[in-house]
């Protein structure tokens, strides 16, 4: 438990530091953003898949109706019934496209299905949302490291 707390503290600290670091390195080139510090955080999450999945499942949708569907999808995901988990997530996507929690789930689901490129693409798509939290942003970034 203590180890878990320590992990979270490290992750948040590194993330906050990385945000500051990014602000200082505004570059004309789009794809030259240094990610070294940032990626250390990501690697920490990658190292423990169960921990990552647990963190993903803690992310709630802003809309309670969508959250209800997400809970169903999470159940299927835990039971490794990926077809039904996907079916539920797609159902939620038809109702809204602005929930970071959905992109996180589907990126994770595709990762579990071994569809790494899709997982990465869903994460990238989620990162375009304007209303996601920094923690969601960080978690989405994990899937860019597939």
């Amino acid at each position: 438990m203590n180890l878990l707390k320590l992990n979270i503290v490290i992750v948040i600290s590194i993330f906050l530091y990385s945000c500051v670091a990014n602000q200082n390195t505004r570059d004309a080139s789009l794809y030259a953003v240094p990610v070294n510090d940032f990626s250390r955080t990501v690697e920490l999450l990658i190292a423990n898949e169960e921990f990552l999945e647990a963190e993903i499942m803690k992310i709630n949708a802003l809309n309670p109706s969508i959250q209800r569907i997400i809970l169903g999808a999470d159940d299927f995901l835990k039971k490794e019934n990926y077809t039904k988990a996907n079916s539920e997530l797609e159902r939620a996507f038809r109702l809204t496209k602005s929930e970071g929690a959905l992109y996180l789930r589907i990126a994770h689901l595709r990762y579990k299905q071994g569809l790494l490129k899709e997982s990465e693409s869903f994460a990238s798509r989620g990162l375009l949302l304007g209303n996601i939290s920094s923690w969601e942003r960080l978690l989405l970034n994990v899937y860019l490291k597939n």
């Binding site: 079916s87 589907i106 693409s121 798509r125």
Partner: peptide, 24 residues
């Protein structure tokens, strides 16, 4: 979307698939 059998079980689905081809 999906094709279900008479019991309502998914027999085949056409999942949502994306691929980032161009930078946004």
């Amino acid at each position: 979307r999906e094709i279900k059998d008479t019991k309502g079980e998914i027999e085949f689905s056409y999942p949502y698939s994306i691929e980032q081809r161009i930078r946004p």
